[in-house]
Design a protein around this nucleic acid. Structure first.
Length: 422
RNA sequence: CGGAGAAUAGUGUAACGGUAGCACGAGUCGUUUGGGACGAUUUAGUCUGGGUUCGAAUCCCAGUUCUCCGACCA
């Protein structure tokens, strides 16, 4: 991508009244735009990051046996009445169609997937199976806050699992917990993210949340120094056991980036989702559900990866891997950087025999000062900054700097690809 | 949903009830060119609707929106 063509604008100074760093940085660097309270557009840069996150999640879900599908946002009132959530769920968006017919905008999809799967599940032979989607959810939060950490409309991955037995549900639940650990690790927030025991809401006694430590978060979690357990403040009073009285815990602010639940029969029953077992009797299907908010995850990544100059994207989710910056208006600089841009953007062989290409943002702008280009590069937070200038070309080299690190290294121009491959 | 604050140019801000100004951005010209450089010049604004007043960005009322605190958060 040529930076001269990229649809974005950066803002030099922080002007925002919000306390959330991720919100401030993502807006200033041109990744997102606020339409209204709790509703955001993802601009081209932000959309690239979102897609990276989406693919990391998709890959893990597929590896856990999940099959992707897409369910509607618009949902019939009747299904929500069946589960008694039409009136009970305060955050439910209700819309009216023609003839005053009422609908819900889906905040979650149990009310769709349970009646859907009912049409396909008859026998114990049909179980288990796992379905997921990555889709927009609507929740009329009474109060939105912290930029994209808490919004009314957001992209969510929701996986639903269907089982014959409690043991099978338990096993799969743990499997997905492991997938979640992988996802958050891959997204670069692994060391800040904890599996946290939390309230099960109306489903079960407990659920597991994945909480990322950040001051921008609105949850409080306790990390016990004595027994190592991690739990949400909401269950602090009920969790003290004979094993550990939890009187020596670290208390941290955090944001919930994922949550997994054992739903059991909660949604199978209202929709009559059952199967005929081997012995000929009908039994309720047991369900689990597993969610990750993508925008919030993106916010959490920024909250844990920035410095005073801007964002520091982990390589796995960065909009581009390489920020190729040309300085000095000269034919030689222009020509060299154009060649590098072309070479990096072409498919090349990497060590394990696969082919790949580097995603490059080429700062080809002629009318910007070096200082401005550097400052903007730091704000955007692309992992590798490669500078091509008269100075570097005098040594037949380009300059490579990793965002977030001080070291600057001169690399021969014709060796850049090999260098970056490492 | 309760409480508090705010709304002026694209952005951030200033103006006692009496000429709407500054900075950044954007445009043009020139000088610069390794950390958001400099000069000249141009551009563009009082949230909406009422009211008080000779006169309202400023005071009052209503609405809308945003931010913050709290409650809520499958």
């Amino acid at each position: 991508m040529l930076q001269s063509k990229l649809f974005y604008k950066t803002i030099k100074n922080s002007h925002l009244s919000t306390e959330s760093f991720s919100h401030d940085l993502l807006i200033r660097a041109g990744y997102i735009d606020q339409l209204m309270a709790g509703v955001y557009s993802f601009l081209p840069l932000g959309f690239l990051v979102l897609k990276k996150i989406e693919n990391i999640i998709r890959k893990e879900m597929q590896e856990a046996g999940g099959q992707e599908l897409l369910m509607p946002v618009l949902q019939p009132k009747e299904n929500w009445q069946k589960t008694e959530r039409w009136d009970a769920l305060g955050i439910l968006f209700k819309v009216k169609g023609s003839g005053d017919k009422e609908y819900a905008l889906g905040p979650t999809h149990e009310e769709v997937i349970a009646p859907l799967t009912r049409k396909f599940v008859f026998s114990y032979k049909d179980l288990p199976f796992y379905l997921f989607q990555i889709q927009t959810k609507f929740r009329d939060e009474l109060r939105v806050k912290s930029g994209i950490l808490r919004t009314k409309e957001f992209l969510m991955k929701d996986l639903y699992s269907f089982h014959k037995t409690k043991e099978d549900l338990d096993d799969y639940y743990e499997k997905i917990a492991k997938s979640y650990v992988n996802i958050f690790k891959e997204c670069g927030i692994g060391k800040h993210t904890y599996r946290t025991l939390a309230s099960g809401g109306s489903f079960s006694k407990y659920s597991d949340e994945f909480q990322t430590i950040t001051n921008a978060g609105e949850d409080i979690i306790y990390i016990c120094k004595k027994c190592g357990s991690v739990f949400n403040r909401e269950i602090k009073n009920e969790i003290q056991s004979s094993d550990c009285n939890h009187n020596n815990c670290d208390q941290k602010k955090s944001v919930e980036v994922g949550n997994i639940f054992k739903l059991g029969k909660k949604y199978s029953m209202p929709f009559d989702l059952k199967y005929t077992d081997r012995d000929g009797t009908d039994k309720a299907v047991l369900m689990g559900c597993y969610g990750i908010g993508l925008g919030r995850l993106m916010g959490a990544i920024v909250e844990t990866n920035y410095d005073e100059k801007g964002i520091i994207w982990p390589k796995s989710v960065a909009p581009f891997l390489v920020h190729l910056v040309e300085l000095d208006k000269s034919k030689k600089v222009k020509k060299t950087s154009e060649k590098l841009y072309k070479d990096l953007s072409s498919f090349i062989k990497v060590s394990n025999g696969q082919v790949k290409k580097f995603e490059v943002l080429h700062d080809d702008r002629q009318n910007k000062s070096a200082g401005e280009k550097f400052a903007e590069a730091d704000l955007l937070g692309i992992p590798y900054r490669v500078v091509v200038s008269e100075k570097t070309l005098a040594k037949n080299s380009v300059e490579v700097k990793e965002r977030g690190k001080d070291a600057i290294r001169l690399v021969k121009a014709n060796n850049l690809i090999n260098y970056l491959k490492i």
